[in-house]
Simulated assay, not measured.
Amino acid sequence: MIESSTLTWEVTGSRGYETAWVDLDPGRSLLRARGRAVGTDPEPYWISYALETGEAYVTRELRVRAESAAGARELVLRRDGDGRWSADGAPLPELTGALDCDLGLCPLTNTMPVLRHGLHRRAGEHRFLMAWVRVAELTVHASPQTYTGRGPDGDGGAVIRYASGDFRSDVRFDADGFVVDYPELARRVAAVRGLPDGQDRPDR
Rank of each mutant, 00 (worst) to 15 (best):
M1P: 14
S4R: 15
S5I: 01
L7E: 13
T8K: 10
W9P: 06
W9M: 09
V11I: 15
G16Y: 09
Y17C: 10
E18D: 12
T19V: 15
V22L: 11
S29Y: 01
L31A: 02
R32V: 05
R32F: 01
G35S: 08
P42W: 08
Y45K: 00
Y49K: 09
L51Q: 01
E52W: 00
E52M: 00
A56I: 00
V58F: 00
L62H: 07
V64M: 05
A69F: 02
A69R: 14
R73E: 04
E74C: 01
V76I: 11
R78Q: 12
D80T: 05
D80A: 01
W85V: 08
S86P: 09
G89E: 06
G89C: 02
A90V: 14
P93N: 02
T96D: 12
A98C: 05
L99T: 03
L99Y: 15
C101W: 03
C101Q: 11
G104H: 03
L108S: 08
T109M: 12
T109H: 03
N110V: 06
V114K: 08
L115T: 04
H117N: 12
A123S: 12
A123R: 11
A123E: 10
R127K: 05
L129I: 09
M130L: 15
W132N: 04
A136D: 13
E137V: 07
V140I: 12
P144Q: 06
T148S: 14
D153E: 06
D153F: 02
D155F: 08
G157F: 06
A158Y: 13
Y162W: 15
G165I: 07
F167E: 06
F167L: 13
R168F: 14
S169N: 02
D170G: 04
D170M: 08
D176V: 02
V179G: 06
V179R: 04
V180M: 13
E184H: 13
L185N: 07
A186V: 05
R188C: 07
A191M: 14
A191C: 13
R193G: 10
L195F: 03
G198E: 11
Q199N: 10
D200G: 12
R201W: 11
D203R: 15
D203A: 13
